[in-house]
């Protein structure tokens, strides 16, 4: 290997390391505002279509009997969490982030179970999210879950 190649590789690796560190530095704050955007978007969409959301929940095995409770509870919880995540005065950002990640975990578990066990699936996920394929939706959720866990870890350290 020529000496110039080493210099070039050194520059590239320094650039990549700097980019990686920059991403890690901004990831917690991007995750927090990303969760807020996502939950406000899907929560508002579900509230706008509340009748069909409740009706759709009625057809989900095991939880269908709680459809009205879930139908109102999920979008309200999403909107409340979105608000708590973005307002720094309330000192509730970390608990709200915990709750957001747990809620995302529940959604992800639901999706994984549906993909594994239910051949004919139904998703009332709201807006453009509902137009994703199930596999893409699962990857999307897992990515958010990972980002949320990382953000909690960093906020706990700070």
């Amino acid at each position: 290997m020529h000496i110039y190649d080493n210099i070039y590789l050194g520059k590239t690796s320094r650039f990549l390391r700097a980019a990686y560190q920059r991403i890690l530095r901004w990831l917690p704050i991007v995750s927090i505002y990303g969760y807020a955007l996502l939950y406000m978007y899907t929560g508002y969409d579900k509230l706008k279509n509340i009748k069909s959301f409740i009706k759709g929940n009625e057809s989900i095995p095991f939880i269908g009997q709680y459809a009205p409770l879930i139908g109102w509870g999920v979008p309200i919880a999403e909107i409340v969490l979105a608000i708590l995540l973005v307002f720094p005065f309330l000192k509730l950002r970390l608990p709200a982030l915990w709750a957001s990640v747990i809620l995302m975990g529940i959604f992800t578990l639901y999706m994984a179970l549906m993909i594994k066990f239910v051949p004919d699936r139904l998703c009332h996920c709201g807006g453009v999210i509902e137009s994703m394929s199930w596999t893409l939706h699962l990857i999307f959720n897992i990515a958010w879950l990972g980002a949320g866990v990382y953000a909690i870890k960093k906020l706990n350290v700070n």
Binding site: Y33, A36, L37, L38, M40, Y41, Y44, A82, I83, L85, V86, F87, P88, F89
Partner: peptide
């Protein structure tokens, strides 16, 4: 931070 939050929530709606 709060202003950014309002912008994010408004953007979502």
């Amino acid at each position: 931070s709060a202003l950014l939050g309002v912008a994010v929530l408004g953007g979502a709606v």
